[in-house]
Design a binder for these strands. Structure first.
Lengths: 154, 154
DNA sequence: TATTGTTATACTCTATAACTATA
DNA sequence: TATAGTTATAGAGTATAACAATA
């Protein structure tokens, strides 16, 4: 990490004077935060060419895997308030990546468009590359051990 | 995780329908994010009685361990823009937890006040409890293995 | 009555630019 | 010229309340 985040949310990274933070460096929460920011920063940079932010990518993933869910369901599955999900989904609709089909007169089923499915395919490939890169850094069996440990924390 | 974040920044947690997110659940970045949010959420709840947010706690820690640094140095060591650090330090000064001493006519050395040192002591104890709780969840040797893996990512 | 989508609003954290008063 | 502290401003993510239309 040198200069840092492409976007606001993922800053506080660079930080750190290798030492100087002696106590902080022993806290799991701090290490977790730095690692999360570092990985998200990589993600954001890598996905910039696709014009996808983490929330948009995960939204496409959920819709792709569960076509037909309504907005509230997709939002809930991602832990996003349905109120905040409106703008997100509007953006994807304007880009013709997602379309809505009326379920009844008050809700819509979400589906990927052809463009959306195509972009998601590219995004998956890109994400697979990132995962491979992370995997390499974690060493043999590292990712599996890490995932097991992380899942104990949520 | 049931209802979730005490504050805005650490929401997107609850989320997750145990399944439904099939693909996301295989990504390190996603697991990292969920774990980070879960742990920060615990931190925020636990530190509410002390009136300390993560950034404030880490600031007190750095000043406590390196008294005499100026604002820019402390800010940089925490990866906080010095512009954004102004409000943070002002808050701590108003609460008489931190004081400034002129170094020269354009910079200040930061020091903890008696109250600041006392609060930091309580905060450290609280943080130690949280770490112990995390340690228990991670199992024998879990924390060490986790820290090693996380450090490979930043 | 409860739910869906929506709007409005506010708060936190972060980023950048630009200013002043120094050094 | 460069640095320390500061102000102003903008953007992203999130939270809550409230409303209309519908179930």
């Amino acid at each position: 990490m040198t200069k840092g985040a492409t976007t606001p949310e993922f800053a506080e990274t660079d930080s750190v004077a290798s030492d100087g933070l002696a106590p902080l460096d022993t806290y799991v929460g701090y290490a977790l935060r730095r690692a999360q920011i570092a990985i998200f920063d990589e993600f954001i940079r890598a996905f910039e060419p696709l014009g996808l932010r983490p929330g948009q990518f995960s939204t496409l993933l959920v819709i792709g895997n569960h076509p037909g869910l309504n907005q509230s369901e997709v939002a809930a599955s991602l832990g996003i308030q349905r109120a905040n999900f409106v703008a997100l989904i509007d953006r994807l609709r304007k880009r013709k990546l997602v379309e809505r089909r009326r379920l009844d007169r008050r809700s819509y089923a979400l589906h990927l468009t052809g463009d959306g499915a195509a972009l998601l395919a590219r995004a998956r490939d890109l994400q697979d590359e990132l995962e491979a890169s992370i995997d390499a850094r974690l060493g043999i069996g590292g990712k599996d051990r890490l995932m097991v440990l992380l899942r104990r924390l949520y």
